[in-house]
């Protein structure tokens, strides 16, 4: 366990080294939030309902989505780097689980994001944008759990994509296409209730909805309690599904390393 904590700490340190990047990342998130608010403000200005609950719901949805996006950032090229540099072979000789290492490294990246980027963005969101508070303390708890599970769903999907590094030398395209699918089908871009039916249904049945739209819907109190449980269960199922696929791929990858020597 101790080893994995060290991996996470190392990842945090590596991120801190890039000074300019750290400052810019904060502003990046805040700018994104402001652009979107301006667009939705323009829409609601016309309908003259800026003070209405509808507008604040939309804003809260969008802001939560960006805050989550700003911490759901992972080191997408770690495995590709390990495979291409050949250091994967030495990693496998070490008495640690490689997938455990990848996970703890990414937890480190997320912790760094929380410290450096989320805190200031959250302050702005609360004081300047005036997002709605969570529906109730209990809902807040469900939301926290669901965010964590959302992260794990995204992580598990990502893992499957990353592991293709063993079969293809440059996975930029896979990652980018995956990102596009995640963004469009997870409800991260706009509140799902504005979506046409076919897309709304796609968000519900694909695993992507479990990443952003489920936690946000819980926060906004749009799900009755029983449905919260089923949605959380659904998140867990998706985690298991993609973890199983990931493990299978990793199993094949290991064989490949043994046969080809990395």
């Amino acid at each position: 366990m101790r080893t994995y904590v060290e991996f996470a700490k190392k990842a945090i340190q590596n991120n801190i080294v890039y000074r300019v990047n750290s400052y810019a990342g904060i502003i990046n998130t805040i700018v994104m939030i402001f652009v979107n608010i301006a667009i939705w403000r323009a829409i609601y200005e016309e309908e003259a309902t800026l003070e209405g609950l509808q507008f604040r719901l939309v804003i809260t949805y969008i802001v939560l989505s960006f805050l989550m996006q700003s911490i759901f950032v992972m080191d997408e090229y770690l495995i590709q780097y390990k495979v291409r540099s050949g250091s994967i072979s030495t990693d496998m000789l070490r008495p640690i689980s490689f997938l455990g290492y990848v996970f703890s490294h990414n937890i480190g990246v997320m912790l760094f994001r929380i410290i450096i980027q989320l805190t200031p963005a959250l302050l702005v969101a609360i004081f300047f944008v005036k997002i709605l508070p969570p529906f109730s303390p209990l809902i807040a708890l469900y939301f926290a759990i669901s965010v964590l599970l959302g992260y794990l769903v995204l992580y598990s999907i990502n893992l499957v994509v990353w592991l293709t590094s063993f079969w293809y030398f440059e996975i930029f395209s896979f990652i980018t296409i995956k990102d596009a699918a995640v963004m469009i089908l997870s409800g991260a871009l706009l509140p799902i209730w504005f979506m046409p039916n076919w897309l709304y249904n796609l968000v519900q049945i694909t695993p992507f909805g479990s990443i952003y739209s489920v936690p946000i819907s819980i926060y906004l109190g749009q799900l009755p309690e029983t449905e919260i449980y089923t949605k959380i269960l659904l998140q867990i199922i998706w985690i298991i599904v993609f973890q199983v696929i990931g493990r299978l791929l990793w199993h094949c990858a290991q064989k490949r390393i043994v046969v080809q020597g990395g």
Partner: peptide, 15 residues
């Protein structure tokens, strides 16, 4: 550059 998390925090703020 300084070592450790605190060290890198420090060189982040005051190079």
């Amino acid at each position: 550059k300084k070592r450790g998390i605190l060290g890198s925090m420090q060189s982040l703020l005051i190079p």
